[in-house]
Nucleic acid binder design. Structure first.
Length: 472
RNA sequence: GGUCCCAUCGUCUAGUGGUUAGGACGCUGGCCUCUCACGCCGGAAACCAGGGUUCAACUCCCUGUGGGACUACCA
């Protein structure tokens, strides 16, 4: 069997979006699964809209997701000589012709046709004029007008098109650049792409492309059109539905494996399994199990997967991931301490950004109390307990989770109180909040010195009568 | 308008003629518990409609309906 070659061919007119990312992922997985080659080609023949920043953004996003390519990136605009050569070949063989219809004329005809209920396709005005190249001329492909073209799609099955529905599309613009539908055929053919995996917004282009493969004498590749990703209102996913940029998810504190796992399950499945590592995907992925229907993007499920992968992640890894996310002004320089903070928080956050936002109290020199929390729990009744705890801590042998738990338990027994009595006051003293990781965890992470200081601060705060002032 | 695609819980999906239609997210009741999460146990929630084919249709066929894509000198 010939070696499989797939490609991802984005146009650099913006960031890599969710839909493109999934297409890239499928294409990458297919190549990897079959031990084939994954090619990246930047389709930048639109001189107006293509930018280097976009190219970079796409490359960055693919790298972040772990979708490395074996060849490329190739740049389509650097291949125009080849495209023009092929255009000339077609002209020589009378399979393409020059056309001098102006965009205005065409637009008028289109409107006219639509208004009278006719097909808005090119009417073939210049088809047999045997024109030669002139200033604003374009080149059109001479399509077959009879018979049918069958797209054998690996996902959708056979799709049959009547050739009469297809019009003579422009393959070379007046600026001398090839159009997408032509360049994509030339490049896929010359790069020996065996499987064209792309969004199903391209199905209607496919029969014309097949005609061009045939006109050029190229072998037609296999096609696999993956269904679109829709927004919650079932229209094409766009910014209106929320973030659509892959890198925006990175910035919002998502792990790439969460995005990858989420994206692959949009359209593809493997029985009831939900969690897949990239390695597993490479092993299991198949086009046979890709569904035909479009999928609605569901941010909640992505969030759940992200929480799952954050829980699973090693704290060393998260330490690195968190580096750019900490808010300014807090000192996270002590890696050992920061890692403990991360470990406390990672089972209870859904994004890395949330982790950064909830970690503030660990790093604060002085805890700032939430008003309600302080009013309710930092009250005179608990002063004696807090003092006693602070006083006992220096003598503790094992300041571990178990050790602290044991100590607190013994303390409550000794004082003949329920743990509840001191739990929330202690939590507020230590964190300023009523919600936090377990008290034992917080104490261990903070370490004896910080714990003692914070308890003493709380005692002082209560003594100052600050709460009474607030209440008035 | 034309062409093409699609149709199982709100969402992602399993299902390939005979199932109490399964799982996951979300929602929800409970357990666990120092708070919050996590985790565990339970619940509500779906085969678009109508015709066929068949002993038997979610599953096959047709029509309708609904949704989507394309219809550029964009990709």
């Amino acid at each position: 069997m010939e070696k499989i070659r797939t490609r991802f061919a984005p146009s650099p007119t913006g960031y890599l979006h969710i839909g493109g990312a999934r297409t890239a992922l499928f294409s990458w997985l297919y190549a990897r699964h079959h031990g084939g080659t994954f090619v990246l080609r930047i389709e930048d023949t639109d001189q107006e809209r293509s930018t280097d920043e976009s190219t970079k953004a796409i490359l960055d996003a693919m790298a972040w997701m772990g979708l490395n390519c074996d060849e490329g990136p190739y740049f389509q605009a650097q291949r125009v000589d080849l495209h023009r050569e092929m255009v000339q070949k077609l002209i020589k063989e009378d399979k393409a012709y020059y056309c001098t219809c102006t965009p205005e004329e065409l637009e008028a005809k289109r409107k006219q046709a639509l208004a009278t209920g006719k097909k808005p396709k090119y009417d073939g005005t210049c088809r047999d004029k045997k024109l030669s190249k002139s200033d604003n001329s374009v080149v059109r492909f001479r399509g077959k007008q009879d018979g049918v073209t069958i797209v054998e799609d690996l996902i959708k099955g056979n799709i049959i098109f009547n050739n009469e529905e297809l019009d003579d599309l422009i393959i070379e613009r007046s600026d001398g650049y090839p159009t997408y539908n032509f360049a994509v055929v030339i490049d896929d053919a010359m790069m020996n792409i065996t499987h064209v995996i792309r969004g199903d917004d391209h199905v209607n282009n496919t029969p014309r492309q097949i005609l061009m493969y045939q006109a050029l004498g190229f072998e037609v590749p296999k096609f696999a059109h993956v269904p679109m990703i829709l927004g919650s209102d079932k229209t094409r996913l766009s910014k209106r539905h929320g973030a659509t940029s892959v890198m925006a998810y990175k910035e919002m504190g998502y792990l790439p494996e969460a995005l990858v796992n989420y994206l692959v399950r949009l359209g593809w499945s493997h029985g009831d399994q939900e969690i897949f590592s990239l390695g597993q995907l490479v092993e299991l992925f198949s086009l046979d199990t890709v569904g035909k229907s479009p999928a609605v993007f569901n941010p909640e499920k992505l969030l759940w997967l992200n929480a799952h992968y954050i829980k699973e992640a090693h704290s060393d890894r998260l330490l690195t991931e968190m580096k750019p996310l900490w808010p300014a002004g807090i000192n996270t320089g002590d890696d050992a301490f920061t890692k403990k903070v991360i470990a406390d928080l990672q089972p209870r956050v859904k994004t890395l950004v949330e982790l950064a936002a909830t970690a503030d109290f660990y790093f604060a020199d002085k805890v700032s109390y939430e008003t309600q929390a302080a009013q309710k729990f930092l009250v005179p009744d608990v002063v004696a307990h807090l003092k006693a705890i602070a006083a006992a801590i220096p003598a503790l042998q094992t300041f571990s989770k178990d050790g602290v738990e044991e100590f607190l338990k013994a303390f409550t027994v000794e004082q003949n109180i329920k743990f509840k009595v001191i739990a929330q006051p202690l939590r507020v003293a230590l964190t300023g909040k009523t919600v936090s990781p377990g008290i034992d965890e917080v104490m261990v992470t903070l370490g004896k010195d910080r714990v003692i200081k914070r308890i003493n601060d709380a005692v002082a705060y209560i003594a100052s009568g600050a709460n009474a002032t607030v209440q008035q």
